[in-house]
Design a protein around this nucleic acid. Structure first.
Ligand SMILES: [Zn+2]
Ligand SMILES: [Zn+2]
Ligand SMILES: [Zn+2]
Ligand SMILES: [Zn+2]
Lengths: 132, 132
DNA sequence: ATGCTCCCTGTAGCAACTACAGGGTCAAGA
DNA sequence: TCTTGACCCTGTAGTTGCTACAGGGAGCAT
């Protein structure tokens, strides 16, 4: 059994974040000490580690919730797990493509800056309408 | 002079968003009609277009605010403009790198799924602690 | 007069936390 | 024993950039 602070250190999670996960139902309310302190067992540690790892991989809390509830009924087919992961992957791909397009536009813009005063700056021009 | 709805259409911006920009001081409060309707002139249109273009390029509202106030004093050196743009570019680069690393991890994970039931799924295993 | 579309203000919601304020608890040292 | 300090508690509000109402008023056409 460990305190919320110890759990936080073990999982690299802020105490407030742990309480937040409890509030939104992602972590079960743990047992309390006589002084009303939360105490966590190893299962809670494993569950929070799972959550953090999933979050680090960019899954949304809703996706994490789904993954957790699927894991809790471990006898089912893992098709849904696969689906969630692939959907997330597709989203990442989309974001990468968007950002690469953005980078191209930005770099063109930045390279055009001649370095005079602002009224003649090409960056500002590129942002402004009606002066193409 | 145009109504808020017309300005919204012209800049592809929702009416609520325009009011929001006004509330946070990004757009000046416009003139009003007798019936208390906002009316916008061409300058407001240009300003909102600038904002939208900057937002499309991923600048934060704070960055947009800075760019606008720099533009308003057009005689200054454009060093600061350049700086904002380069900072933003660096952030985009960081995000791209992060997402590419993420994609690598995810694809490894997804490819490892053999398709049985959940308790043996490699995706779940990859997310879980203590079972490496 | 009635409907319809637009506009107004003010407030609350989204994601995923984070940061207090204003207290209580607990272990250790003087 | 008393006190100090680190930790914990609840509850609420802030962050970013909007978006969505609710409950009204304005303006125009029929
Ligand atoms: Zn290009
Ligand atoms: Zn320049
Ligand atoms: Zn790898
Ligand atoms: Zn699987």
């Amino acid at each position: 059994m460990r305190s919320i602070g110890a759990l936080g250190k073990a999982t690299n999670t802020k105490v407030e974040t742990i309480r937040y996960y409890e509030r939104i139902g992602l972590l079960a309310p743990p047992q309390r000490t006589d002084g009303n302190y939360r105490t966590y067992d190893d299962e809670a540690l494993a569950r929070l580690s799972f959550i953090r790892r999933s979050r680090d991989l960019g899954f949304s809390l809703d996706q994490v919730r789904a993954l957790l509830s699927l894991t809790d009924q471990g006898t089912q087919d893992c098709k849904t797990v696969d689906r969630i992961a692939r959907d997330h992957m597709a989203e990442i791909e989309r974001k990468i493509a968007d950002l690469i397009a953005l980078r191209h536009e930005l770099s063109t813009m930045i390279e055009s800056c001649g370095g005079g005063n602002i009224s003649g700056c090409r960056i500002i021009e590129a942002l402004s309408p009606f002066d193409n």
